[in-house]
Nucleic acid binder design. Structure first.
Lengths: 343, 343
DNA sequence: CTGTTAGCGCTTTCAA
DNA sequence: TTGAAAGCGCTAACAG
């Protein structure tokens, strides 16, 4: 170790100083000498070696479905830069759609000595398999459905609440035939459908059997196209049979909105429309698009806080943070904004 | 090394077999024994150790501005999964906005023994600084402006062509007062503005002095809000002073479209509108939104091909692939689609 | 408080 | 064609 030579101390001392060992006292002079040598030699530790010798890597994996909503990517970007600020190296990975690939990825991560992991997404199969958590110093899980797992901290952004709020709003404002428009084949699809169905039933809304369009998910095939195809097909049977539409994304909602306009159907008078994700554009569409808020800011805070706390203290009790998504009323939803009490 | 023991051979042999050394012949029997031991022991090589011992890491960094268009993220996702398929580990990093941070990141990457890098984005300052390329086995650069650098392979997706095509279209279809709506403070902003200005001039279009709105880039602040503010401000001076708008993103174009509709201005009769990125939704808006195609598929192919080729053969001549972005006519742009000859 | 030393798991050179 | 052995740069346990 050149730094040691240069500073005229032992390798061990350098290591201890550079890694800020908690209860290790060095003379201020030696500390200075080492610091200087580091600068002089432009020394950067070789993390391969560190990892080999059993030290932590200061790499945090962020496993995220990159195909998801832009607003989620913004969240990922924030997390990534927050990690960097705290001296960690973010290792952003795309959460594979395939279970086996995902398992492989996690194995790789563990093998590479990654210190911790923020793992997100609706791909619950892999996330729910808590078996691998023990291989990391810290694991924070983000899900949109509550999972029964241990060995990690959790942020649960439950969709159910929002689905229910939206459906309640439909019922309260006199809609009768809701439609759910989805297009992915995410694992959470079934979940979403059942939540929506339940919510409709509890509000005595008539859910037509073909109320869910789940167009085959072809990677990189434009999804709005599928939506339009489906709507065209629906319309063949004379009049538009729905008076309320809940969409899986704001983008789909915009597609539906344009489609309705072309058919001279009015939003919200003829059809109430609610999107999902509460993207930046929602307040500025015509009419403004009601949506579901994913609580990005709070999620960001919770995720980072939990991770750093766990990294600092492996033994702290497991945390579970509930951040249910929520319905944001705007004109496209029709009727009146829900009372504060309903929120 | 347990595998060696288990297979009853020397560590070196295992290494040579597992890494497929080109001119190294082993008896089929030993090869089989090793293969079996690997499976039996569920062996995964420790890349920290490999890297320490001087071997390559099979990590490829993908440095990308994560804040960019969704369609670019789809591209990033494809690259990432392609890398994985070829046995590489993609290391996705957010290209920092700040030059110093970016330099730091590249240093880190080099230090970590990353084999290669795909580096993208308009942040030319760092990309143009070819000094660090030599530290990697393979570097592929993607830019939207031609750069004069060596030591890497390049994919140039020039924006100029598309800007010119769009502006020409405005002129040809009888527009007189074009507007450019942008909102980021990306390094390429100046570039975009000057390209647009030049194109207008060459078409004798009257470019009003305040034709570019570059709202202050506040991270995570909704950009459509800024656009609306700007347009509202514009309208204060009686009638809408523009008859053609080119937007930096399709999302901004959609915002402008809604805004115009609210003011009972018709697209394209009153105002011609062109977006950017040719996102999935563009064919399905009302009217369909003209846009600029980023040539995602071809870029994907070029990037991957170049990277793998370079990784295989360090000495091959440097490649430069030109994939100019191009104008995609749709109704919102008004007039007639450009002749094939104009493309 | 600081120095010494034995590996971590792998590659690679040299020898057989 | 295969084995043996010397490190790569660092940490951690132990010695002083």
């Amino acid at each position: 170790m050149d730094v040691a030579e240069r500073a005229g101390v032992a390798k061990g001392t350098v290591s201890r100083v550079l890694n800020n060992y908690p209860d290790f006292q060095v003379s201020e002079e030696i500390r200075e000498r080492i610091k200087k040598a580091v600068v002089d030699l432009n020394y950067i530790p070789h993390i391969g070696a560190a990892s080999l010798a059993g030290k932590k890597t200061r790499i945090i994996a962020v496993v995220w479905p990159i195909g998801s909503a832009p607003v989620e990517l913004a969240l990922m970007k924030r997390i990534s830069s927050q990690l960097q600020k705290n001296g960690y190296m973010p290792y952003i990975c795309d959460m594979p759609d395939d279970l086996q690939e995902a398992t492989q990825l996690i194995d790789d991560l563990a093998q590479r000595g990654v210190d911790g992991m923020i793992i997100a997404g609706d791909d619950c199969e892999i996330v729910a398999n808590g078996e691998f958590y023990s291989r990391f110093k810290a694991v924070v899980v983000e899900t949109s459905v509550p999972l029964d797992i241990t060995g990690c901290d959790q942020v649960v952004r439950d969709q159910t609440t929002a689905f229910r709020q939206a459906t309640e709003h439909f019922a309260r404002s006199g809609r009768h035939h809701p439609l759910l428009v989805m297009s992915s084949q995410s694992t959470s699809r079934k979940e979403k459908i059942s939540v929506f169905t339940d919510a409709c039933r509890s509000q005595s809304l008539e859910l037509l059997t073909n109320a869910c369009v789940t167009s085959p998910y072809v990677p990189w095939k434009p999804v709005p196209g599928n939506v339009v195809e489906f709507l065209d097909h629906l319309l063949q049977n004379e009049k538009f049979p729905f008076d309320a539409v809940l969409c899986e994304t704001d983008m789909i909602a915009l597609t539906v909105m344009s489609w309705l306009r072309k058919r001279e159907l009015h939003v919200p008078d003829d059809v109430a429309l609610i999107g999902f994700n509460n993207s930046d554009i929602t307040p500025f569409t015509d009419p403004p698009l009601a949506s579901i808020d994913r609580r990005i800011d709070e999620t960001f805070n919770a995720l980072c806080e939990m991770l750093f706390a766990r990294l600092d203290n492996k033994d702290r009790p497991e945390q579970k943070y509930e951040l249910p998504m929520r319905f944001i009323w705007r004109e496209s939803a029709g009727g009146e904004p829900p009372e504060e009490a309903n929120r």
